[in-house]
């Protein structure tokens, strides 16, 4: 039996079950049967820029193997390096370099999942480009495992940047942040707390130097910063339209750090619940009813998110 079928057999066809990654963020509800995904990298092809691995593989193990060949895969692990590949995909959270590196959902090329019915289903394909059939991969990213337990994936890798440099710029208020952003060519991140801007530039060292000099010439002198601001102190994430970031930050009384150009705002206030459209909820329901008719996979996971 291969490792995917073996995982499917452990999940079975009846009874509630919790798929456990590293358990780094979300602990399973008590008394729930837990199953861990298989582990191990089955193939890494640097000249294809793809890697195939089992979902239980630790992000840090994957990072190490890819780094040996100067590559990485974007799974949001800069913020959260301790989890598994499956956990990162099931939750779909992005780290703060999304502006430059893109969203996690764009990293998944092929996925094998075990549905609530116990069937193994493949979506996508191993090549870097593919439009054969409907996009099951994107549906699985951020699904909290409610449509299927992720068994094995093929991911798109990217070359590690030649250099990564953080700068901080003082005295950036709401009237200047848009200007600062406009003067940067494809930064990897621009973070802002209403007073200070932090900029992450990636690429050729001399391009970074040039960009820094140009910022200075436009009235934005910068200091080197180790790694940008500390986001861990701000437990909540708001998700707003990028064009709403400046007024949002200016109106908040508590602490915030916004991802400019992206629209994620880290803060110490709980974000409001959003209303979901009835038609969207109906699509959600039909999806879960088909993939997991008894709603036995990861009961409660992401419940506030998936209704």
């Amino acid at each position: 039996m291969n490792r995917i079928d073996e995982f499917a057999a452990r999940i079975g066809t009846a009874g509630e079950v919790w798929i456990r990654g590293a358990g780094s963020r979300v602990e399973p509800p008590e008394n729930l049967r837990t199953v861990e995904a298989p582990t191990g990298i089955s193939s890494f092809e640097p000249d294809e820029m793809t890697v195939t691995c089992a979902a239980g593989t630790r992000l840090s193990d994957l990072d190490d193997v890819l780094a040996e060949r100067g590559q990485y895969v974007n799974l949001g692990q800069l913020r959260h390096p301790h989890g598994t590949v499956g956990g990162a995909l099931a939750t779909g959270w992005n780290d703060h370099l999304r502006l430059g590196r893109g969203p996690v959902r764009d990293s998944l090329l092929e996925v094998h999942v075990v549905t609530g019915r116990g069937d193994v289903v493949k979506g996508g394909g191993r090549t870097v480009k593919n439009v054969s059939g409907f996009d099951l991969c994107r549906l699985m990213v951020g699904s909290h495992g409610r449509l299927g337990a992720i068994a094995e994936v093929t991911l798109r890798t990217r070359p590690l940047p030649r250099a990564t440099r953080w700068l901080s710029v003082d005295d950036v208020d709401g009237s200047r942040i848009t200007d600062l952003f406009a003067h940067l060519y494809r930064p990897s991140a621009v973070l802002w707390n209403g007073l200070v801007g932090w900029v992450c530039l990636e690429g050729h060292p001399s391009d970074i130097e040039t960009a820094r000099a140009e910022l200075r010439d436009h009235g934005f002198p910068s200091q080197e910063s180790m790694s940008g601001p500390d986001l861990d102190a701000l437990p909540y994430r708001w998700s707003i339209a990028p064009r709403a970031v400046v007024p949002h930050v200016e109106e908040r009384s508590g602490q915030v750090i916004a991802e400019v150009g992206v629209g994620v705002v880290h803060g110490d206030e709980v974000p409001p619940r959003r209303n979901t459209d009835a038609a969207i909820e109906a699509i959600h329901r039909r999806l879960t009813d088909s993939f997991d008719p008894e709603h036995r996979l990861n009961p409660g996971a992401g419940d506030h998110l998936i209704r």
Binding site: V264, D277, I306
Partner: peptide, 29 residues
Amino acid sequence: VLSDGSLVRLGGEEPEFEGFDLRGAFVGS
């Protein structure tokens, strides 16, 4: 516009969503 005549917004200008990535599923459909 879905086949029942209702109009829905999939995704949005905001970067992160509650629920499944229906935008992603729609592209390429």
